[in-house]
Design a protein around this nucleic acid. Structure first.
Lengths: 326, 326
DNA sequence: CTGTTAGCGCCTTCAG
DNA sequence: CTGAAGGCGCTAACAG
């Protein structure tokens, strides 16, 4: 593999000049530039990014940490991140943790070790002390906000969104609304639960802890629990914290023989493809997934490059998608 | 940031010894090792991977190129790649091309430039000349095999799989089977079409080009085309080249009022989650997605590290999943 | 506008 | 078992 030195020799210039041409410095005469380009061409020279990055103390890589990409929600967020990173000349190093904080910690070490310039944490579980030594301006949180992590963040207003969709159910005449929420310890899930509570209270209904169903976000495991509950015919709706939960809920309602949405209404959250394709199609909260990824990346790169850290808390708008299930 | 030099000074040893400790060389006395570890601890030293990678001429990064991760099929393949890469100490640099060969080419340049050690191309469209200068042992193809790309590969037998599922439809008594296939120029799609043809011929049925429906792999756009076709009631089944196509096909059959599977049967391909969740659930070909990613990664890393290139052509087993739609 | 030169941090012979 | 020293390829002062 030829190096700048070889190119320099061939072009009859110094390595500094070759480097200038490589980096589009304008302090090179057109004539010299051409000579250098010719030598590069002839030798088939390719810059060694390992050397360049080392010298510049910069990897141009962004670490992306999230629980999974099997869920279409995160897949879409990643697309927003990737496109934006590419636009600014960065690549993305992908880490799906399956919610293991240990895996997340291991990857986060890459920041201090300079394998990556910074990280976007999209809703992945992180242990607090994994972050002790990391410069907060090198991290942006997306989708989710862990307050103990003092970084910029980009997400929607989960409480408000859930409030709105429950309020929608109530306006549709539903009187006994269940709430299916992800497992505990995740801030956005607690926010959504609070939105549910506030919607009930605003409409003069009583909030009961027993009406909260806890189940995994990215699965349909709600099915069994719900089927048992709704046999009683006491309930006429469930507001779910994800579209996959909603699918499970619809299956349960069908299994019990309830007509959707009249006898039993179901709402989802996220607006991933399945909510549109499923039958019945699912009324849900559309999150601006791509835009969350995009904005988070822009904030991170700007923070990385300007070296000016202003903690940003960005709330992006959501949107209720009314469909057949409610 | 402290460097090996600082650690050496603090521990009262040479940088070589520090380096030995860092790399678990056994040629260090336990006593010295402890001194060094103590100094590392006290200084909060973190090895600079930019420097190490440069020095070792190795990035420990694998490039993963695929059309999209919005499709659960690829998301699962990526998981297999990521887990395996991690196991061997590699990270993955993700590139989703949306089937743009230009984007793929840009990223592939990272191999010669040493930003990555090698690449897995999972079914992404590549232009042949993007690869001219790349060492074939640094690339493994997954899911798909472009023969002009003379590399190792890991995939299923697409022809056989499609043959089997069409044969299954015939055994179920279907007489006029349509075939929905992805757009042209993709080897696996042509293989599948050939499997369709052979299944018909084996059963004494006539293959007609007009019974081939071309449509995008990752979408339900088949819906419109199919709805028009099946109004005639001439057809009693469609074998689709993806589960999402199958969803579109089922919607079309429902729209026309055909009973599934008796009046109209539908099969998918891939066995992604939606094929299990949809109603009716979809009979499909299960691809070993995770294992494809896993195996491809193992081959790549072994080829990278042993520097011994044996072109491997790995065909993994598939499996017909019988469900409600056929 | 161009060249000389000094490292960046680490690993790895080679000597001892 | 340990230390000294060279150098990976590139960039960026600095000098001219």
């Amino acid at each position: 593999m030829p190096t700048v030195k070889d190119v320099a020799k061939r072009a009859g210039v110094s390595v500094a000049t070759v480097s200038r041409v490589l980096n589009n410095s304008n302090k090179v005469s057109e004539e010299t530039r051409q000579k250098v380009l010719k030598a590069i061409e002839e030798l088939g020279f390719k810059p060694n990014l390992l050397a360049r990055n080392f010298r510049r103390d910069k990897s141009n890589l962004i670490l992306v940490i999230l629980p999974t990409i099997a869920n279409a929600y995160f897949a879409r967020v990643v697309k927003g991140i990737e496109d934006t990173a590419r636009k600014y000349g960065y690549g993305i190093l992908l880490c799906t943790t399956g919610n293991s904080p240990e895996i997340a910690s291991d990857y986060l070490k890459l920041i201090e070790r300079k394998q990556v310039d910074g990280a976007i944490i999209a809703s992945a579980k992180i242990s607090k002390d994994a972050l002790l030594e990391i410069d907060p301006k090198k991290i942006v949180q997306a989708c989710e906000f862990y307050p103990f992590l003092d970084t910029s963040c980009v997400l929607i207003d989960h409480k408000k969104a859930f409030f709105e969709i429950v309020d929608y159910l109530i306006k549709k005449g539903k009187k006994n609304i269940l709430c299916a929420i992800g497992n505990e310890g995740i801030p956005s899930e607690e926010e959504r639960k609070e939105g549910y509570r506030q919607a009930l209270e605003k409409n003069g209904m009583e909030f009961k802890e027993e009406n909260i169903i806890r189940c995994r976000y990215g699965s349909t495991e709600i099915y069994e629990k719900l089927k048992t509950l709704i046999c009683s015919k006491k309930y006429d709706a469930v507001a779910c914290s994800s579209d996959l939960m909603a699918v499970g809920a619809i299956k349960a309602a069908k299994a019990v023989g309830l007509k959707i949405p009249d006898e039993f209404a179901v709402t989802g959250f996220d607006n991933i493809m399945i909510s549109r394709l499923y039958e019945p199609s699912i009324t849900t909260v559309a999150q601006p997934m791509y835009e969350i990824g995009e904005k988070a990346t822009e904030i991170l790169i700007s923070s990385l490059e300007n070296n000016s850290f202003s903690k940003e808390r960005v709330i992006l708008p959501h949107d209720i998608k009314t469909r057949e299930s409610a």
